[in-house]
Design a protein around this nucleic acid. Structure first.
Lengths: 201, 201
DNA sequence: ACCCTGTTTCAAATATTTTTGAAACAACTA
DNA sequence: TAGTTGTTTCAAAAATATTTGAAACAGGGT
């Protein structure tokens, strides 16, 4: 969450060298890309996404062009294994796609460029992996203190417990269905809401 | 993020004993509370909140009554230091408040009971600590490749880089202002949006 | 089949985060 | 002031998460 001192900064084999080279006027661009990568990595890690995975995604997004594993390793100074794992996760999420170049055996990867789509994907995954299971667990939990069981009728403690649980479940279900709207193929949900909200408040 | 095997499960001094006692009909309630605490702790840790802090919050929310440090330690089998730190964080966030009981030197803590308010507070804090700094950093980053600098005019690379950056910044600013609406004292923002959305889609 | 190039896997190494517990502190009381 | 009770702090210990790197694998060529 804080600094970014590489685990192993020495220039060993298997690791890409760092680049103190490059002296054209492409410098501010390059520096801008690096900055973006750092910001995104930092942000990712504070939202529970491994920093390196976020950095790989940031690099592919900001470069705009497909890159291969070696280019990513070199640019980010990360190991082959780490690059491979990050790319796999990003691909599983649907945030990047594989690209083949004719006459090149290497795989290239391109990031989704539509920002709305990027956040739709992230929302979809987090909902699926984090919100939905919680909701299921909360319903199980609610079942423990029963659907207004006779013997509890009048048990003030149980009743207020159930009320608290119900309020929480209801709220999370609301968020959940909002996320559904945003994620849905129609997908204009949030944009619409924003428009309406802008006028209404 | 996964299991929940206590760091130190042995019954040493300074640690609250675990309770295999309790045999009244208050059992399902007690079990329901425990379940809720686990779910919330799990959820918190997948959202970047220390598990224990989330568990303390969950306990105070679901119990509904103010509890003191020793009761929390015992119920959650955590150390005094951990309890104190979690309570401090929760208090800093504004999710719990201190309560004094006459004739008792101990501090008691009560959780905010309004679910909407709870999520408004969480939104406010995350926005302040995570979104706003990112936005500032992104603007700095954007400045590196300048405000349509003359020498870059026609540099296709720089121009498309700036476009990508601008799209991202614009999106995050949108989210940021949505969060503002939700957090705002008027505070009916999201409820309103939900209503409108429900009808409009 | 063997060699070459590129990719994936996964146990071990490393880094990061969280928790503990004992000491320092604070606020009363006698 | 010394004693008592409750709270906070923080360095060290423990737990968790991430990264590495070498070996296994995959798919062409030849």
């Amino acid at each position: 969450m804080l600094e970014r001192t590489p685990m192993n900064a020495s220039a060993k084999p298997h690791r890409a060298a760092d680049h103190s080279r490059q002296g054209r006027s492409g410098q501010p661009l390059h520096e801008g890309q690096n900055r973006f990568v750092s910001i995104w990595g930092e942000m990712g890690s504070s939202w529970g996404i491994p920093r390196t995975m976020a950095e790989v995604h940031a690099l592919l997004y900001i470069v705009g062009q497909p890159l291969n594993t070696d280019q990513i390793m070199e640019r980010l100074s990360i190991s082959r294994g780490s690059a491979s794992m990050s790319l796999k996760s990003l691909h599983d999420w649907g945030l990047i796609s594989r690209v083949h170049k004719r006459g090149d055996r290497k795989e290239y990867y391109r990031a989704e460029q539509d920002v709305w789509q990027v956040f739709r994907i992230i929302t979809r995954e987090r909902k699926r992996r984090e919100i939905d299971p919680v909701l299921m667990a909360l319903h199980d939990c609610r079942d423990l203190t029963g659907p207004r069981r006779p013997q509890d009728a009048g048990d003030e403690q149980v009743e207020s417990h159930n009320e608290r649980l119900d309020r929480m479940i209801e709220f999370i279900e609301l968020i959940d269905s909002l996320a559904d709207q945003f994620v849905s193929p129609a997908g204009k949900g949030l944009q619409l809401a924003v428009g309406l909200l802008g006028k209404a408040v």
